[in-house]
Simulated scan of single mutants.
Amino acid sequence: MTATAALITKDPRRARRKVAFASAGTPYLFVAPAVLILMCLMGIPILLVIVYSFIERAVTNPDFTFVGLTNYTEALTDRKFHDALAHTVLFTAGSVLAHLVLGLFFALVLNSKFMPVGLRTSLRALFIVPWLFTIAATAVLWRLVLHPNGVLNSVLAAVGFDAQGIEWLSSHALALPTVIAVNIWAGYPLFMISLLAGLQSISPELYEAASIDRAGRVQQFFHVTLPQLKTTIVSLALLDAIWTSQQFPLIWLLTGGGPVNATEVAPTYIYKLAFSQYEFAEASAAAVVVLLISLLLAVLYVRSNAKAVKEG
Rank of each mutant, 00 (worst) to 15 (best):
T2M: 11
T4R: 12
A5K: 00
L7T: 00
I8N: 05
I8E: 09
K10I: 07
A15D: 04
A15S: 10
K18N: 11
V19F: 11
S23Y: 15
P27S: 12
Y28L: 13
L29T: 00
V31F: 10
C40A: 14
I46H: 01
I46S: 03
L47G: 02
L47H: 00
L48D: 01
I55R: 06
A58D: 04
N61S: 12
P62D: 06
P62Q: 10
L69M: 14
Y72S: 03
R79D: 09
D83P: 00
L85H: 03
L85Q: 05
A86F: 09
H87M: 07
H87I: 03
T88K: 11
V89P: 01
V89L: 13
L90M: 14
L90R: 08
L97M: 13
A98P: 04
A98D: 07
H99I: 09
F105K: 01
M115S: 13
R120D: 06
R120S: 15
S122Y: 14
S122H: 11
I128D: 06
W131Y: 15
L132T: 08
F133Q: 03
T134V: 07
V140R: 07
L141M: 13
W142E: 03
L144M: 10
L144K: 03
L144P: 00
G150D: 02
L156W: 06
G160R: 05
D162R: 15
A163Q: 02
W168P: 02
S170Y: 12
S171T: 04
H172A: 15
L174R: 11
L176K: 05
A186K: 09
G187L: 10
L190V: 04
F191L: 09
I193Q: 04
L195Y: 05
S201W: 10
P204S: 12
E205F: 14
E205G: 14
E208I: 07
I212Y: 05
D213Y: 14
R217W: 14
T232R: 05
T232L: 15
I233A: 10
V234W: 10
S235R: 00
A237Y: 03
L238Q: 04
A241T: 03
W243H: 05
T244C: 12
I251C: 06
I251K: 02
G257L: 10
Y269K: 04
I270M: 08
Y271G: 06
A274G: 08
E279M: 15
A281S: 15
V288N: 09
V289H: 00
L291G: 09
L291Y: 08
L291P: 00
L291M: 13
L295M: 14
V299W: 15
V309F: 08
K310G: 02
E311L: 13
